[in-house]
Design a protein around this nucleic acid. Structure first.
Length: 273
DNA sequence: GCTTACCTGTCG
DNA sequence: CGACAGGTAAGC
């Protein structure tokens, strides 16, 4: 479900709620969601560790601990919801992580793709996939660096490249389609054919789309909810994603094709190849 | 690059 | 019933 804006909204929401909390004994309902160490070791090692900050790199959430860190990736349908008290999520609960004060952090995940890693130190991050990420598109890539990066990959096509987390980290299917629409670039466009101005336009489109996504509290197209279980609002502002047949401002119908194995929405009039 | 696999659910 | 879903890793 979540791309960079959704993970960032969760991070910002959880940060004040989890500040200085100490984990108690967790309940693991689906061991496969615990990627490292074993579920048994995870149960044994988590209690007593105190939270000292929340970070994010790409789509990974990093819960910093006094000893090590708890890394979370939500993949398609993962949810991380904090509750002071009250009933756990009714469906697809995979892990319940209580704190010493009785409050709870719930991880639920319909499709079971998401995962949690308990690391003893940041040196173990390679266990998670974090080590393979390119620079975070929101925090670490300015306009100049984006152009340098693009110029290094001229044989690629735009959408597959932007989705590649080794190239830049954080963009997913929704925000790539919206960014390409906003910059009037075709998803299959060869990077080698882009002018300097087009690269700059794409960069600004990505920035503004991510900012707006975060400002709206994320996109709840299907499953996404924030740290308090509330839906985002950006789904109401999507120009093309999920809107096959809807008329663009130019009067042309939004088209759906498959690119990089993903459903891809664009305006064939505004986004010529 | 592309395809397939991982899972469970919804929609047409 | 098949197609598709916010992601990624593995294997051509």
């Amino acid at each position: 479900m979540p791309e960079l804006p959704e993970v960032e909204v969760i991070r910002r929401g959880l940060e004040p709620l989890l500040a200085a909390k100490t984990f108690a004994a967790p309940r693991i309902l689906f061991a496969g969601s615990i990627r490292h160490p074993s579920a048994a070791q995870f149960r044994r090692r988590l209690p007593g560790r105190r939270i000292d900050g929340l970070g994010r790199i790409g789509k990974y959430l990093i819960i910093g601990l006094d000893c090590g860190e708890l890394v979370v990736h939500l993949r398609m349908t993962g949810r991380l919801v904090f509750l002071e008290r009250g009933k756990p999520p009714a469906r697809h609960l995979r892990a319940a992580l209580p704190f010493s004060d009785g409050s709870m952090l719930y991880f639920s995940d319909m499709r079971k793709f998401g995962g949690l890693w308990l690391l003893e130190s940041a040196a173990e991050r390679d266990l998670t996939g974090l080590g393979r990420l390119g620079p975070d598109i929101y925090e670490q890539v300015d306009r100049h660096r984006f152009e340098v990066l693009m110029r290094s990959r001229c044989r690629a096509r735009l959408k597959p490249l932007l989705l590649d987390q080794r190239f830049v980290a954080g963009l997913g299917n929704i925000y790539v389609d919206e960014s390409l629409f906003r910059s009037r670039l075709h998803p299959c466009r060869a990077v080698s054919t882009l002018s300097r101005e087009e690269i700059a336009r794409l960069y600004e489109a990505i920035r503004s789309v991510l900012e707006e996504g975060i400002g709206c509290g994320g996109t709840s197209a299907r499953d996404y909810v924030d740290a308090r279980g509330e839906q985002g609002d950006f789904q109401n502002r999507l120009s093309v994603y999920g809107h096959k047949g809807r008329l663009c401002n130019c009067g042309t119908a939004v088209t759906r094709i498959t690119v990089a194995g993903r459903g891809t929405y664009y305006c064939p009039q505004c986004q010529k190849e």
